[in-house]
Amino acid sequence: MSGLTIGPAEVIQFTIGGLTNGAIYALVALGLHIIFKATRVLNFVQGEQVVIGGLLALTVSTTLHAPIFLAFVAAMIIGGAIGYAFERIAIRPAYRLGELATIMVTIGGFVVFKNGHQLIWGKESIPFPDFAFDFPFSLATPAFQGFAEAFLKATGAGFNPFAIWVILLSILGVVAVHLFFQKTLFGKAMRAVADNTKASELMGIDSTQVTAVAFAMSAALAAAAGILGGPLLNAGGSYGIEIAVKGFSGAIVGGFGSSLGSVAGGFIVGIIEALSGGLISSSYKDAISFGIMLLVLLVRPSGIFGEKEVRRS
């Protein structure tokens, strides 16, 4: 770190960056958690759903000249539909063949989705507009300017208005999912199926419907992550698998068995990554964040906030 002094201001700066990335990882982690709960498998398609979400939003907003928030909603709906269709067409036939077969199918799906979107949108990543100045996300208000200036004066760290939206909207998404599981009948049915599929089927719950909805939900969350992360990650290209592993690291660190644990883990991984990138070396930041996951697997397989869901064999 030649010439650059690391003070509290830099640490705060890195932490804000980490929270922004972490918010995106948290959405991915939550999506992985939902599918894991419903089917007991890891969904390798998740990362590509993130990429496709970003691409869809970009296409909708540029070809239809739709405002970004409409593109946001449209991409989440289309992404969710793709997830639903994928479950219907590929996952459902594999499900009865066992966990191993199902995961293999998601890996096959990963290959299809990745090369599919690269075929349609190309291999290079496409610049994604910073939506923090567009309606309704515009923060160019005096109140926000004042806040940003006060924050800069107090801490020495500035932040991008876009970061606030990423963090706020992903927290909103997480809360919405949480309320869905706790308060709605269908959410409760999903939890019942996750706990005990046989018993919930005997109670009249359509477990196949639950699985399909789980895939749709997590695909929609992934699409949201792709759009929110757009200004950071751009759209398209091949970042999908890395973000899937980051999300998975988050879920493992926080606790794969618990939804809030997965989300918290996503933020933790984001912060660790940003701090290690800023304070140690950006070349090793990915290795460090994945290394943290392996460390947690070693010392506390159920994750920091997880119940003892993961058993050692």
Binding site: R40, L42, E99, I103, V245, F248, F290, V310, R312
Partner: peptide
């Protein structure tokens, strides 16, 4: 670990 964490861990 039980389950298929292994796939993700080897991917990482």
């Amino acid at each position: 670990l039980r389950g298929h964490y292994f796939a993700m861990a080897t991917l990482a």
